[in-house]
Design a protein around this nucleic acid. Structure first.
Lengths: 299, 299
DNA sequence: TAAAAATACTCCATAGGTATTTTAT
DNA sequence: ATAAAATACCTATGGAGTATTTTTA
């Protein structure tokens, strides 16, 4: 069975005449008859009812004609689609977001990208920590990561997009909430809500480093896997949390955010696997570079 | 472009290895490489990225793989489906009903047939007069007609299923409505609602014949194309109408039906075009013979 | 240097052509 | 009687095989 059989059958079915169909196909009538017979033999059904005066479709042939047309169209479209995938005009791109970018950036970028590249199917995943993102890039689970530096991985290429200063999330009843800004040293002795250390969060490392510089060990009262949970815990008055400024987008009753003086900022970057740069991925990277260009801009 | 190309591509894509794919396809590796190259040239896109150590799909190839699999599956299914159409297991059957069968029979048969032959797609059309049914059978617009006799047409085969006695539809305020039964002669002088004579309705002819036998010419006050309209007109008190008994199924406020003595009955038949007896049509005809067997049974 | 894809060529299976016969109207 | 499909037979394109070279990890 070959597409030839389908093409020939469609021609004969449309002309209801072997001679004319052969002409249309630029071939002689006998081989056409043979190919049709071969087709009928293969599927085991008479598709055409022929007398020497009239050729007509059987019920099976009528149904097969529809299918054959669809298949031939599908073959053409498959080729055209592949070509468009090749130019990046259509495609599928999966993007993984670092937890702190989940609330401010993900919704904005998702809307922007879908608007600007409507032919590309996107899949967005939030709340991924950078080590998990690197693994996902390797596995091919995601094509692009909106992540934190540093990443030392040979096959993951990274481009820093902006600096994000850190803020501290405080219960609104907390004495420090009255201040305009908070120095890191002020947090000495406060109960900290952090990510679990085994997650190897870059932010977590930054907090530990800043605390060490301020001369104390943060007292950790809770470890949570998601940024949203972290803020919820602060709202509940369980402690304070240091987060990148963009988390301010996650407004919750009972929580206030205050600038943190004396803490380094963290870097927001985009990363991709050097061997998974499909044309669609390239186009998305270009758009991301534009969208993420304004340094430390909120969502 | 032939299905061969798709089969080969799927094999290579699945194995990610020309040698193993060739083995699976029971062929040598060089011609396989050639066919894949030919495919890529035809659609103008690189589907596979190859080094001598590793073969991998490009983004375009990944998409094309999905399409190719679907197409190959569709080709198989098309053949299987044609075979099932050939046995009548699946199919499409269009049935046209005579106006008076539209209200009692059509809904019952539609439900029964869909239940009994779920793999067959049905299309039901009501309110067709027999001459129109014959024309539709010729055009192929319908496959089967639930019709009236007589039909004299070489290529339409007819089987009489049952006799239907005639009843008269009267406004409930009409003096004759008080009687148990009505003789045709009683209708002398009454305003008749009929089908237009140009429609050549068999029922209409029967009424004219019966009137002639009773010694009068019916006075026609309205000609309507649909049986439902006819009954509505009776309800409105515009006149009386002679209809087959099965129209009693069409209950309307203000209308009563009375048996008509001294009028011939009309025949309900099924008809089909002798050259459109597809397997599915055969199966439906068999079911119809069973369902319509009880003589003059109401819906 | 070794494994695998690409190239070069050869061959034969079969798609397609030509001539003719059969068939149904 | 004739138009059109089927049959018989032939030709030649190109798909597939074998041997070899090229490439890169």
């Amino acid at each position: 069975m070959e597409l030839r059989h389908l093409r020939y059958f469609v021609a004969v079915a449309e002309e209801c005449h072997f001679g004319r169909a052969a002409e249309r196909l630029h071939m002689a009538q006998p081989p056409l008859s043979q190919q049709i017979r071969q087709l009928e033999k293969e599927i085991g059904v008479e598709l055409l009812h022929r007398t020497t005066r009239k050729v007509s479709l059987t019920a099976a042939g009528e149904r097969y004609l529809e299918r054959a047309r669809n298949i031939l169209r599908a073959v053409e479209q498959a080729g055209e689609e592949a070509a468009r995938v090749d130019t990046g005009e259509v495609g599928r791109v999966s993007i993984g977001f670092i937890g702190s970018a989940t609330y401010a950036l993900l919704p904005v970028l998702a809307r922007e990208l879908r608007e600007q590249l409507p032919e590309i199917e996107f899949e967005f995943t939030g709340e991924m920590l950078t080590p998990a993102q690197v693994a996902a890039l390797h596995e091919g689970t995601i094509d692009i990561a909106v992540m934190r530096t540093p990443v030392q991985d040979e096959s993951v290429e990274v481009e820093v997009m902006r600096q994000e200063s850190l803020v501290v999330a405080l219960p609104e009843t907390h004495p420090l909430a009255a201040k305009e800004a908070v120095r890191f040293a002020d947090l000495k002795g406060e109960p900290f809500i952090t990510y679990p250390s085994e997650h190897r969060s870059v932010l977590h490392d930054a907090v530990l480093a800043a605390a060490q510089r301020a001369g104390f060990q943060p007292r950790r009262v809770a470890q949570v896997a998601e940024t949203s949970t972290m803020v919820v815990f602060v709202a509940a008055g369980l402690g304070v949390a240091v987060v990148p400024r963009s988390v301010e987008a996650l407004q919750l009753a009972g929580v206030v955010f205050r600038p943190l003086v004396g803490a380094e900022s963290v870097e927001l970057a985009i990363g991709w696997h050097s061997e998974r740069r499909t044309p669609a991925v390239e186009r998305v990277l270009e758009r991301l570079r534009v969208s993420l260009a304004e340094p430390d801009a909120p969502a």
